[in-house]
Every structure is written in C-alpha cells, then in structure tokens.
Design a protein around this nucleic acid. Structure first.
Lengths: 202, 202
DNA sequence: CCGAATTATTGGACGCGGTGTAATAACTAC
DNA sequence: GTAGTTATTACACCGCGTCCAATAATTCGG
C-alpha cells in the first residue's frame, strides 16, 4: 500500500506545493484567469509535471473533497445488515461528513465568488459527487427487492444532492458554523425518510 | 417576442440541421470522437457558424431538455398559495415533465452507451438541471419563514436530482416505457414528502 | 436602380486545456 | 561502472471556444 519508492529519481514537487501555488494565483487573478502554465511555473516545475500530480486544472480545487468522499464505500460496507437501508445510508453519509477535518474547508467553496464562471465550478463539483452515486445506488439496490431499480437511483441522486447542498450551506455559514456533519444530517435526513417510507413501507 | 428578422442576410442553416448532422456523426463515431468541424462541414456551414447556433458542442445534446426546463419557473409562478409548498413543488416539477413531448427523447440520453465518457455526460446533464435550482430554492424559501435557508437549498437540490434520476430511468426503460411524468412523480414524491414533514410539521 | 442599414456567414488567428511520446535526469542496487 | 527505475522535461499535436475584421445577402428608403 505504501507507494513511496526508495528507488528512482526523487520527486521535485508535490501536490501540496502545486496546490499552494495555485491558491495564490487564484486569489490574485481568479481561477478562470490563471493558466496551468502559471501554476507550474510558480511551483518551479514544468507544465507536464503539473499533470503528473493532477488530472486536470479543476482537480486542484477538490483534493480534500476527494479524499473525504473515498470513505463513503467503506462506511457503507461497514453498515450492519439489520438496520433499515435508508437509515444506513443516512448514517454512512453523515459519518463521512463527520470524518472530514473541520479546518480543511475546500478551497473551491470558500472562494466561490472569486471564480469567474461559477458554472464551471458547479459542473466539476457535481462530477465529483456523481462519482459516488454508483456506489450508493448499488448499496440501496442490493438491499431492496423492488424490481424498480429507478427508485434506488433516485434515492442515491437525491441523497448526494442534499449532502452537496449541506456542504454549501456549511461553507456559507462562515466561522461560527456548526460541524459539517450536522448540516449534512439535517439535509440528508428528510430525503432518506421520504424514500424509506416508499421502499420499506413497514 | 418573435425575433425573426425580415431584414438582413437570411440564415443558411438552423439548429435542426446542425442537430441532425451532429446526431449522425455521433452515431457513427461516438460523441467524443466527432469534432465541431465535422458537424459544421456535414451541415454545409463553417465551424464558426456552428457556434452561432450553439454555445458549445455539448449544447447540441440538450436542446430539448433546455426547452422543457424553461417551463419550471412558469409552473411555479402559477402555483396556488393555498397548497403546501412541497406539494406545489412536486406538482410543478411533474407538470413540467408532463409537458415534455414524449416523442422527443433527448438524444444525449438515448445513446449514453455510445458516448465515450459517461461521467462527463451525466455531469453536463445534471448541470443543466441545477441551473433551475435557484428558481426552485427561491420559491421554497419564499414560502418558508424558517430562518434556516439551507433547508430550502437542500430541498431544491434533492428534488431536481431525483427528477434527473427519473429522466434517466425513463430513457433506460426503452420503447415500452410509461410517461415521463410518472417516473418523475415517483422519484420526486418521496423527496418532497420528506422535506414537507420537516418544513411544515403540521 | 442605387446606396444605406442590417444580419449571417466566413476565414484567420489566438489562448488554453489536455494527451502522447520520446529523451533525459536523478537516484538505487548490484 | 552498469543496469534498472522513476520523475521530469521538451515538443508536438488536437480540439474547444473566443475574437475580429471582412464579406455576402437581404430589406428599406430614395
């Protein structure tokens, strides 16, 4: 699991360095107006090296989010089979949110206003979220004997969307905010309750 | 409202022509492998003319969707103030879906499999939907005296995401499918019910 | 019939993101 | 020192999207 090689040419840069260089430039020039060249140049590496550490320019904005979201499948797998499916979903999503370090507010969200086109930001953010939709849909569908797979899909989509909205609210709340998990729980709760009433009409 | 000019050079092309040329090429080569140049060339116009009719390459995929989605704000405005908020939301969204012509299955969704990266497609489609989130959020927030605006946002996001999932299911159902509005109602219903229980605990 | 105004189309150039490839640098192990 | 491994680099390329200036095709007013 440890991917730190003792052999071969040592790394000159790192995700952190590039991230910081990018953040500076974004603040100075906004996201839209800074090029990958500039980021790489400030970090002291070539443009191609940037793409060695990030798959795309927008990836810089979401490093923290990605790390946190990877926990979702683990949390789902750890769910007890005895608890109702939508309760398990709500708890898993909430726990993922709780695992996110409170001090690490994703850069992208804190400076939404500074980023020229907000659409591009939303698009890349949604894409991040949708990556998890398959995992969530499979989990729900697995536990539901309903032949109507569209319901699982809808539940997964709606749950993640609510979580995204909660994250947005959390950031907007500013310094005096409560914990992220609370916002997420408040937003995801109604969605899961609504679908639970349909999926498990017990 | 009619912007058809009697003066000036007449149009050589149209959105329909370009759309059809694009559809042919997408089927032959997939979306990812066809360039804007090719679309324009097949339509008998120059590349720049393409951008006269569409803002971007992906816009071609969503013309029908965009037309339908524009109805949302109208439906919301027509809602009676006496009916509970989330009921009004559910009905409005369902009516928008009902207004979509059943024969006009959005090209993008019918051929999801043929389009290289499905992620990009899903994201761009969801983005279209989320353009309406402001309208929906404002509508909900207006009728709710709750100071917690984050709930309105979550409700709007979740509702639209459920609608998107329903649209996907509708397309996947193939030729023997029921009406789009039914899928949407099934998916949006639980979401609205869940939030109604929180927003209007009456 | 002629010019002015209007609108669509066109070509050309540019910037930027992203990909691919082949060369090379920096290091470890033997 | 040589071989193997990995990171970095330069270079070329493609495609999307934008901008701009030129031009074609039409209507309108004289």
């Amino acid at each position: 699991m440890n991917h730190s090689p003792q052999v071969g040419r040592p790394r000159r840069s790192s995700q952190r360095i590039l991230e910081e260089s990018a953040a500076e430039l974004f603040l100075e020039q906004t996201y839209a107006r800074t090029t990958v060249d500039q980021i790489a140049q400030r970090a002291g590496v070539s443009r191609n090296t940037f793409f060695n550490y990030f798959g795309s320019k927008s990836d810089v904005l979401w490093v923290d989010i990605d790390e946190t979201l990877e926990r979702l499948s683990l949390e789902l797998a750890a769910a007890s089979p005895s608890v109702p499916v939508m309760d398990a979903v709500r708890d898993a999503v909430t726990r993922v949110a709780a695992a996110h370090p409170d001090d690490r507010v994703p850069w992208a969200l804190t400076h939404v206003d500074l980023m020229g086109t907000r659409e591009e930001l939303e698009a890349s953010g949604l894409r991040r979220l949708m990556k998890q939709s398959d995992v969530l849909r499979d989990f729900i569908g697995q536990r539901v004997r309903s032949a109507d797979s569209s319901l699982s899909r809808a539940a997964a989509f709606a749950t993640l969307a609510a979580a995204a909205a909660a994250a947005g609210a959390w950031v907007s709340a500013g310094v005096g905010r409560r914990a992220l998990a609370e916002y997420v729980a408040d937003a995801v709760g109604p969605v899961c309750a609504g679908f639970a009433a349909v999926i498990e009409p017990g």
